[in-house]
Design a binder for these strands. Structure first.
Lengths: 197, 197
DNA sequence: TATAATACCGAACACTGTTCGGAGAAAATC
DNA sequence: GATTTTCTCCGAACAGTGTTCGGTATTATA
């Protein structure tokens, strides 16, 4: 064999994760079956247990990956922009990722419903800490005022709830609803920020 | 037998629903088993099919019930209050119900993830229409101004996203997080409304 | 009282996630 | 290069799932 054992192990893990993610996108999370993953990846069901401890382990790995990508999406904003505009664009990027990578978003939320929060501090505070930093910058620059003891952390939580709800509603209750969500979402975020001045 | 057939049918249906709801609260939605419901209600698994077409039918019925109660929670606000305060309290009631009746909230959102929206117009637009009416009243009274083509429907959607996200985050990512959420949520909603003036 | 409709169950079917023991292949040791 | 150890992978089985079907009591209707 050409590749080393570790490389092949890593490749197989990736293949399993990729297949699982595709199946979630295709058939929905509740129809995701370990046996179907095995079938598509060319293994027996038992064979997968050489690479993951359980089905939940697979989903957990995907959740961490998705969380990391969600974070990067919010982080990848042009830094030369004024901090409020940076905040708005980070929010919009968060919602955009949630909607266009619904598989990840659904997996993340299905797991955290029945467990604690994501372990690693970096991943855990993930998106949250990204927004917190931008908001703190905006406060420093005087573009936002934290009146009424509405501190940076609380503002961050509130904005997080807003954009999280936007993504969630879009994928659930408003799934078949057509509207110019991007424009509406921008107005909503702007409105909230105006209330902070 | 004392009761008529219809009465007994209705009673059994209620018992099944109640048992299912309790099991969701106790063990989580993904651990909900039709056989366990049957065990607790004193029936064989097959027997339940005399009362519901499927397990999903049970959950669907619960989702409609929960949606209706959620709506009533938001509706049950003292009408003599100024419309903005009514709006704030309706929002807080929505979040409060979501958090304290997590079973319902989880069922509603798990179903609408994989289906269309709730059928009946009354239930479907449910909470949405409640908030829409209050917001329209607030606009009429001049307490809120819809600038920038940010119309009543869009404002309603935005507020809905905000409070929906609050409930969702609380039950998932922030499950083990302690804070005075009621006070923070109020400040967040107020901030948004201030942005509408 | 005879007949029709309902309520309920046991058994079976096709699934599910997971475990275990044992093969065969690859790597490490000698 | 031969031998031992480690790693892969699978078949079979277990306990669990939702659902269907045929049959049997029980209840309501005629």
């Amino acid at each position: 064999m050409k590749n080393t054992r570790q490389e092949r192990q890593a490749d197989t893990r990736k293949a399993i994760l990729q297949t699982a993610l595709g199946l979630v996108a295709e058939k929905g999370l509740d129809k995701l079956s370990l046996r179907e993953i095995a079938r598509r990846v060319g293994y027996s069901p038992a064979g997968l247990y050489e690479y993951f401890d359980s089905k939940e382990d697979i989903l957990w790995t995907l959740a961490k990956e998705g969380d990391s990508r969600l974070r990067r999406a919010a982080l990848n904003i042009r830094p030369e922009l004024p901090s409020t505009e940076r905040l708005i664009q980070a929010c919009l990027a968060y919602v955009d990722f949630s909607v266009h990578n619904a598989e990840y978003f659904i997996i993340i939320n299905s797991l955290t419903t029945h467990r604690a929060s994501l372990e690693e501090p970096a991943s855990s505070e993930s998106s949250y800490s990204v927004f917190l930093k931008i908001i703190e910058a905006a406060i420093d620059e005087g573009e936002i005022i934290s009146r009424d003891n509405f501190c940076a952390e609380e503002i961050t939580y509130s904005l997080w709830a807003l954009i999280h709800g936007m993504g969630m509603l879009r994928l659930t209750q408003l799934r078949n609803f057509n509207a110019d969500f991007e424009s509406i979402n921008r107005k909503a975020i702007e409105t909230f920020i105006i209330g902070l001045k």
